[in-house]
Structures are given as structure tokens and as C-alpha cells.
Amino acid sequence: MNIFRLAGDMVHLLSFVVLVLKINATKSCRGISLKTQELYTLVFVCRYLDLFSNFISMYNTTMKIVFLGTSFAILYLMRGHKVIKVTYDREQDTFRYLFLVLPCALLALLIHNAWTPFEVVWTFSIYLEAVAILPQLVLLQRTQNIDNLTGNYVFLLGLYRGLYILNWIYRYFTEPHYIQWIVWISGIVQTILYLDFFYYYIKSWKNNVKLALPS
């Protein structure tokens, strides 16, 4: 494991902490897209199907369980918690799941490394993760007065993907036969989706003004 990979995972973990903190501290999930959270949960469920059948390391297994557990906990807070669920921006969070799930499923059926159920579902999770942030970005654009924690949450998610790209570059040069086209291209697409957000996030941070995305 290299430093970029570890930093990427820690930033990803931190993004969950920030999100749970925001929801719990403010008792509100305003500005958070339930659709993105549901898509991420689907991503983790599909990707970690081999959780108990393919042991890689304690680190790997622990992180997978934490990601899955936190994702379901966030879904519970947003859908089941009686105080928090009423703060959900249902009317604004209108992105259609099918526009993301269907193309990713078709692409996974067409482009994958092996024609096995596990491999196709795993590939689907890679494609879906790349675009799962879109409902959240659309909701941010519609949200007036984005709070700091929500902005930081999305920034950390983007930063995690950026660090993974550095990890892949490092691994490509240090490990023999390390070629992962599906993961790389999806990861690059995923990172590109954040570029516009990064621009406004850094601008608001430099000018010390509240984050607002132009609609």
C-alpha cells in the first residue's frame, strides 16, 4: 500500500465522518442527496459481494465493513430518523436513478474483464460509483446557503478520487502487470465530474466567502 492509496482511503473515511457529523450535529440532512447516498450504498453492496469469500487483508475487510455500515447508517438517518427525515429536500432531489443505473448496468454487461456474475456486478459498481455524485451536485446547485460541512463533504469525496489516481500512477510504475483500464477510466471520469465544484470550492475558500454554485 502506498501513501496515495492510504491517504485516499483516509479522506474517503473522513468524508463519511463529516457527513454523519453534519447530520447529527445539525439534526438536519438539508442539502444532502438521498439519491446519491442510496447509489453509494448500492455501489458498496455490489462491489463487496466477496467480503466473506475473498480475504485480502484485515485492513481491507475492516474498511469494507465500515463503508457498508456507515452507508446504511446514513440511509437510516435520512429515511428513518423522525427528526432528520423531515429536513430532507425531497422536492429538490429529483435526479432519476434510472438515468444512472441503467446505462451503468448496460455498460457492465458489454464491457467487463470476465463474463461471470461476480465480475459483471463488480464492474457495474465501478461504473456506478463514477456517476453516483451527480444527484448530489445537482442538489448543491439548487441549494441556497450551502453549509460548510456539506461543501467539505463533497470536497473530500472528490479529493479521495484524485488521490486514487495518484495511487494508480504510482502502482503502474512500481508493480509489474498493473493495468486496470476499467477502473482507471471510470476513476478519471469520476474525478472530472468534481472539477467544476473544486473550482468554486477553492474560490470561495480563498475569498473567504460562503460556497455557492452558479445554477
Binding site: H12, D50, N54, S57, F67, N113, Y164, N167, V183
Partner: peptide, 10 residues
């Protein structure tokens, strides 16, 4: 081997 290594990322 390569096959198991390729799923070591989260």
C-alpha cells in the same frame, strides 16, 4: 497472483 491483486482496492 494478478487475479486476486486486482480487487485489493476499495
Amino acid at each position: 497472483d494478478d487475479e486476486s491483486n486486482d480487487k485489493d482496492e476499495l
